[in-house]
C-alpha cells in the first residue's frame, strides 16, 4: 500500500512524460502542420485520433508537444530556483547572526510582494523569449527553497561532523558543498519536486494570458486557452490539455508531499 502511494503518481507522471517525448515523432501529423482537408475535425478522424483544432492542426500532437514544452520550461525554472534558493539559504544558514537576519528579512519582504504581477511585468519587459520566461519564473519561486535550506543548515551547523571538518581546516565553501548540502539532499529533492508543479502552474497561467510561450510553439496553457475559446463547439480541445495539465500538477504535488513527509520527518 505504502509503495503504491508513491508508485501510482510517479508512474502516471512517467507515462505522460514518456508519451510526450516519444509519441510526437510517430504521429502522422506535426503539431504545426495544417491539414486543410480536416479543419475542426471531430475525434477519431483517420490520422487524427483526437481530431484537429479550428485551423486544422492535430490535437493529440499539439497536446503532446505542449506537454513537452511546459515540462521543459518547468524543469529549467525549477533548476534556476534550486540554484538561487540553495545558495541563498546555505549562505544565510552558514553565516548566521546578522547576515542571516538580513537575508531572511529580504526573503520575508519578497514573500509579501504580489508576485504574479512582477512575473507579468518581467514577461513584458523581456519580450517573448522562452529562455527568459523560465529564468523569470525561477527567479521568483526560490523563496521556499531558501527557507528550507537555511533551516536545515542551521540544524547542521553545530553537528560534530561539520565542526570536525572546520577544525581540520576545510574551507567554508568545501564544507557547505561536500558535507552539509549532500546531507540534506533528500529534503532539497522533495522541495524541488514540489517546485515543479508550481512552475507548471505559473507557466500555464502566463501562456493562458498570452504572455508566456508564443505561437507557433505551444504549451498546455496555450492549448487550454484555445480550447476555452472553442469549447461550445469542440469541448475535447479544452478537456484533453486541461486533463493532462491537472494530472501532471496533481501527481507531482502528491509525489512531492509524500516524499517530503517521508524524508523530512
Amino acid at each position: 500500500m505504502n509503495r503504491l502511494r508513491l508508485a501510482l503518481p510517479a508512474g502516471l507522471v512517467g507515462l505522460v512524460l514518456l508519451a510526450a517525448w516519444l509519441l510526437p515523432s510517430l504521429l502522422p501529423w506535426d503539431y504545426r502542420v495544417i491539414d486543410w482537408d480536416h479543419v475542426s475535425a471531430p475525434a477519431a478522424t483517420p490520422g487524427h485520433v483526437l481530431g484537429t483544432d479550428s485551423v486544422g492542426r492535430d490535437l493529440l500532437s499539439r497536446t503532446l508537444v505542449g506537454t513537452r514544452i511546459t515540462m521543459m520550461v518547468a524543469i529549467a525554472a525549477a533548476f534556476v530556483s534550486l540554484i538561487i534558493g540553495v545558495l541563498w539559504g546555505a549562505i544565510a544558514g552558514w553565516c548566521g547572526g546578522k547576515v542571516d537576519a538580513l537575508m531572511m528579512r529580504i526573503v520575508d519582504a519578497l514573500y509579501a510582494l504580489p508576485f504574479m504581477f512582477v512575473v507579468i511585468l518581467l514577461m513584458v519587459v523581456f519580450g517573448r523569449s522562452i529562455l527568459l520566461v523560465f529564468i523569470g519564473i525561477g527567479a521568483v519561486e526560490w523563496l521556499t527553497m531558501a527557507r528550507v535550506v537555511r533551516g536545515q543548515m542551521l540544524a547542521l551547523r553545530h553537528r560534530p561532523f561539520i565542526l570536525a571538518a572546520e577544525a581540520a581546516g576545510a574551507k567554508a565553501g568545501f564544507i557547505v558543498f561536500r558535507h552539509a548540502l549532500p546531507n540534506m539532499a533528500a529534503v532539497i529533492l522533495a522541495y524541488l519536486l514540489l517546485t515543479v508543479p508550481q512552475v507548471v502552474m505559473v507557466e500555464s497561467f502566463l501562456s493562458f494570458l498570452g504572455l508566456g510561450v508564443q505561437e507557433p510553439m505551444t504549451s498546455l496553457g496555450i492549448l487550454v486557452k484555445e480550447g476555452a475559446d472553442d469549447m461550445d463547439v469542440y469541448p475535447i480541445a479544452l478537456l484533453v490539455p486541461g486533463g493532462v495539465l491537472v494530472t501532471l500538477v496533481v501527481c507531482l504535488t502528491v509525489l512531492g508531499e509524500r516524499l517530503r513527509d517521508r524524508w523530512a520527518a
Partner: peptide
C-alpha cells in the same frame, strides 16, 4: 489535495 492542485484557468472554463 486534488482541489489544491486545480489551476483556476482550467476549472473556470470546465465549470462554464
Amino acid at each position: 489535495t486534488l482541489l489544491t492542485a486545480l489551476p483556476t484557468f482550467v476549472t473556470g472554463p470546465v465549470l462554464a
